[in-house]
């Protein structure tokens, strides 16, 4: 059982100077998924910027139907409600990755498109749900950060690829401080992205784990290996393939197998 400080909405809001993100903060002890809650809150346009935290998720979601696993109180499980964001979904997803990497710090790198890794292991992930309600575009930006997990808290199959901030830093991270940093970074980068998309792309590329490294990916069910010679955050990875030739792999149909 992990003993932990609890997340408190007042403490998270205290001193937080953001324009939109975290304008309201709610914390739940337990929920199915913070993104499911965000979808409900998103029906009210007044909830733009609302940050929903949960100490525990019963059905946290990841990509391709994967579960996001986190013992109670061990991580940051958060969803941000965004109504009529000026950013298109793909840019929003990348902007969130840049902000998340900045909030985590410590040399956090981005694994395309938006996983966050520390020392080569996944410490945080993003899932963005996009929908339309009446005339409003709604985005539910779900973020999970592993904080207090020990190695044994991860299933054996994930122990080589997943980690937590406590494991990597050797310190006990303060989740309230991290939550504040996350909301502030999201607010800053989303504001910046609206007027200077290139700044987001540049920052994303600087933090990219793949550029100039060997990558194996699965594209439409087939494996390809090569050196990554270009990363276009919105369109895909460009590989110099081992078997010759240069190809761009469309993001939506590709997944990284290993670096």
């Amino acid at each position: 059982m992990i003993r932990t400080e609890s997340l408190n909405p007042d403490k998270i809001r205290e001193g937080l100077q953001t324009r939109h993100i975290g304008s309201q903060v709610v914390v739940f002890d337990s929920t199915s998924s913070t993104n499911d809650l965000a979808a409900q809150y998103g029906r009210n346009p007044d909830n733009h910027g609302l940050a929903i935290f949960a100490e525990q998720q019963e059905a946290g979601r990841g990509r391709a139907g994967h579960r996001w696993l986190s013992p109670p109180g061990a991580g940051i499980l958060c969803s941000i409600v965004l109504i009529d964001s000026p950013l298109r979904s793909e840019l929003l997803s990348l902007t969130a990755a840049v902000a998340l990497a900045e909030a985590i710090g410590g040399g956090a790198r981005i694994k395309w498109p938006n996983d966050i890794l520390l020392n080569g292991k996944k410490v945080s992930g993003i899932l963005l749900d996009a929908s339309v309600c009446d005339t409003h575009r709604i985005h539910c930006l779900g973020i999970g950060i592993n904080c207090h997990q020990g190695r044994d808290d991860f299933p054996e199959s994930l122990r080589d690829s997943a980690t937590s901030l406590d494991i990597e830093t050797g310190l006990r991270v303060d989740r309230v401080v991290l939550a504040k940093r996350l909301l502030a970074a999201l607010d800053l980068w989303m504001e910046r992205a609206a007027s200077d998309e290139a700044a987001v792309v540049q920052q994303w590329q600087q933090a990219s784990l793949q550029l100039a490294h060997r990558v194996t990916l699965c594209f439409n069910g087939e494996r390809f290996t090569g050196n990554c010679i270009g990363v276009d955050p919105q369109h895909g990875l460009i590989l110099q393939l081992d078997h010759g030739g240069v190809r761009m792999f469309e993001a939506a149909h590709s997944s990284i197998v290993k670096e």
Partner: peptide, 27 residues
């Protein structure tokens, strides 16, 4: 799903579903 963005798709028409032409998880 595209680049980990889960996009909800609406029917934008009224009627009765007659055919499903793709399978779950298909590109």
């Amino acid at each position: 799903e595209a680049m980990k963005v889960m996009n909800e798709i609406k029917a934008e028409v009224s009627g009765t579903l007659s055919q499903i032409l793709v399978r779950n998880g298909q590109a």
